[in-house]
Amino acid sequence: MKLYFKYFALHLKSQMQYKITFALNILGRIVMSFATVTGVLFMLTRFHEVDGFTVSQVLLCTSVVSMAFSVAEVFARGFDIFPQLLGNGEFDRALVRPRGIIFQILASHIEFIRLGIFMQAAAVLCYAIPKSGVNWTPNKIVTLVLMITCGAAVFFGLYIVYASFAFFTTEGLEFMNILTHGGREFGRYPFAIYGGGVLKFLTYIVPLALFQYYPLLYLLGRTQNSFYMLAPILALVFLIPCYAFFRAGLRRYKSTGS
């Protein structure tokens, strides 16, 4: 952990070398992420509600998913650009150092400009919290925190899966976008609106709904079931197969070297 902070400090130091570029980039990201929110606003001013969720309730959902996604993007950047690390020899460097591989990939890339989305989403969340009609109790605050942190963990798992594919093939990885970027993009609405099939898939296979839809129901008081509150924790189980897949990819890399 101490070592991670060393890396963290170095990243901060090097990215602060170019303050103006840094500021412009963050600003760009904030503007960029407004497209999604504007889309949601346009749709809900026209239709007033979707599956019984009001504007601010949907925005609550949108912002939670965006925050979770951007945390993963900032800290799991090394997995996001993993094909590059394989190409430029950085991954080989990690292999000749006496530390865990996943740790080194995490620590070696932290991209702060990607906090732009987080900042924008946090602002939207602040707007939505009082308006969404949620009766905020300590339990619900815990739920909200769990949604964001466990959500980040699930996205992190998806990035690991993406990186693991890179061990097997260098092209065609873009199909993972449907789960990573698509997860954020389509997570702007509660996943139940996409119908039962999609919801099942996002519950049992890629558990995006476990940190979005179910705890949202709990927040909005549509259910009192505390299982819904803790669903985000259950989503962490997803990390196990992700890790196993990464190990399998690593074994292959070591036997082919490409």
Binding site: T169, E171, G172, L173, E174, F175, N177, I178, G182, F186, Y189, I193, Y194, G195, V198
Partner: peptide
């Protein structure tokens, strides 16, 4: 080749989700 197949699946799934929404 693989990029083409992957793009295909992605875009198909994307379109499907859009229509569902």
């Amino acid at each position: 080749r693989a990029a083409a197949f992957a793009g295909l699946t992605t875009q198909f799934a994307w379109g499907f989700m859009e229509i569902l929404a």
